[in-house]
Design a protein around this nucleic acid. Structure first.
Lengths: 207, 207
DNA sequence: AGCTGTGCCGAACGATCGTTCGGTGGGTAC
DNA sequence: GTACCCACCGAACGATCGTTCGGCACAGCT
């Protein structure tokens, strides 16, 4: 996590005494998200975070207003990624099934590339106001996908025997469950996208 | 340690002042699991638990050795349910696909009926020795299912284009994601089982 | 030279955590 | 009666939490 700090040590951009890279809010949010991913939000102390960043706890507070701000920043990044998918042209035009396919594929990509942030979003319990706000936005996203599943079912393009609401939940569940096991070094993102699409739209059996 | 207290319920077994129901370890584990389900393990204090049980914090400790024991008890119950499925005859005999189908259906049933306990199991981060022990047992279960998926693929009964390991992860993810939204009062268990089986083995599309 | 702003730190704050302990009151056994 | 048991409680323990504060070292500017 600190390898990038001493390379351009000659120039003094901000203040930084011993090394070049200043601590930005974004970089500290990244550090925090990785720690939250590993131990969970509540079980991660500010001492843990500051140690991971390479400074003391009190120095850490010089750059960050508090623990909840780190959470909020990470959740913002996750939600921006997800809602960005919904705003893409291929998610807005064409038959419902095609739009659904595109959203699922892109959602998997966002999950894979923004893994720590999305993981944080999906593990929320709603204990604080910030968490409830993020859960509300996440529900918006899920409902948009659920509406698309219902459209596809009514258009006769999806299995009518299954309640579209339940189908949408299972769909979201399948995609979101990636955070439980996917690690970027083991499986390529492109292969992951294909595998999820096949399993979701074609099922486990057949061939 | 405590099972001997409730069996002879007619004769005032323990002491109980205001009501007849004695506090057994099992009933307190149930209370705890429900609270953990709502707020998360770390965010739930012993004060919360004792208040939910209707006694003070110090009285609570008269019945329970500690917070981790409650966690351990709940995890035990979840793991017993899951491994019980693997031990059923229909999970041991017959072609791989049929055994897989049976396990998936029964696993959904266990998730639905033991929801708080399984939820606790699936949210573990491995911060304590107890958590790591439970994660190890859970991995055993997942590997047993993964082995069955591989068998089915080699037998030509599942899609060969998808890596069996990834397919098994997606399968487990789909089933386990039920804990994120399923509540026993909204959808009947039998309908849930059918919907999951269809979505997993037949896919979202078609009709 | 002196002044100022800033990155960083040690020490401590009050709050809350899980846990322990001494005691109390009312029931049972003798 | 009296001795004992046990569910229950109030109060406090040490530890750790997130957060704050005063001060130190050093760079840029005048």
């Amino acid at each position: 996590m600190s390898a990038a700090r001493e390379d351009r040590a000659t120039r003094r951009p901000g203040r930084r005494t011993t090394n070049g890279e200043p601590y930005t809010l974004g970089s500290l949010i990244e550090v925090a998200a990785l720690a939250f991913l590993e131990r969970g939000y509540d079980a991660t102390s500010m001492e843990d975070l500051s140690r991971a960043a390479g400074i003391t706890k009190s120095s850490f507070y010089h750059h960050v207003s508090g623990k909840e701000a780190l959470l909020r920043g990470a959740l913002d990044r996750a939600l921006d990624g997800l809602f960005g998918v919904l705003a893409e042209p291929a998610a807005l035009e064409g038959p419902p099934v095609a739009r659904l396919r595109h959203i699922v594929r892109r959602q998997v990509e966002v999950l894979a590339t923004e893994l720590p942030y999305v993981t944080l979003l999906l593990r929320l319990r709603g204990n604080t106001e910030t968490e409830r706000w993020a859960l509300g936005r996440r529900r918006e996203f899920d409902q948009a996908v659920a509406a698309l599943v219902r459209e596809a079912t009514e258009a006769g393009a999806a299995r009518p025997e299954v309640d579209p609401v339940v189908a949408a939940r299972l769909l979201s569940g399948t995609v979101n469950s990636l955070i439980e096991w996917y690690r970027p070094d083991r499986v390529a993102v492109a292969d992951l996208v294909d595998a999820v699409e096949r399993q979701v739209f074609d099922g486990l059996l057949g061939g």
